[in-house]
Simulated scan of single mutants.
Amino acid sequence: MKSQAVPFENRWTNGEHARQWHRELERLGVQNVRTMFCEHETRHGEDRAVVFDIPSGFVRDWLAFHDRQTARQQLVWRGSVIALGLIAASGAVLGLLK
Rank of each mutant, 00 (worst) to 15 (best):
R19N: 11
E46M: 12
M36V: 08
F52D: 13
A5L: 14
G15Y: 01
D53S: 09
D47M: 11
R68A: 06
E39R: 14
L94W: 15
S3N: 12
H66M: 09
L25D: 01
R27V: 01
V81I: 03
F65S: 08
F8T: 01
V33G: 09
D67L: 04
R78S: 09
K98G: 08
A64P: 01
M36P: 03
V50N: 00
L63G: 02
R11P: 08
C38S: 13
G15L: 07
G79L: 01
L25S: 04
S80H: 06
A18S: 10
A89G: 05
G15M: 06
Q74T: 03
G15S: 04
F65A: 09
G45A: 15
F37M: 11
T70C: 12
L75R: 06
A92L: 15
E39H: 08
R48L: 14
G45V: 10
I82A: 01
R72K: 13
A71R: 02
R68T: 00
R23F: 07
A88V: 07
P55S: 05
F8S: 03
T70W: 05
Q4W: 06
S90Q: 12
R27M: 10
N14W: 14
C38F: 09
N32G: 07
R60L: 10
E39N: 14
A18F: 05
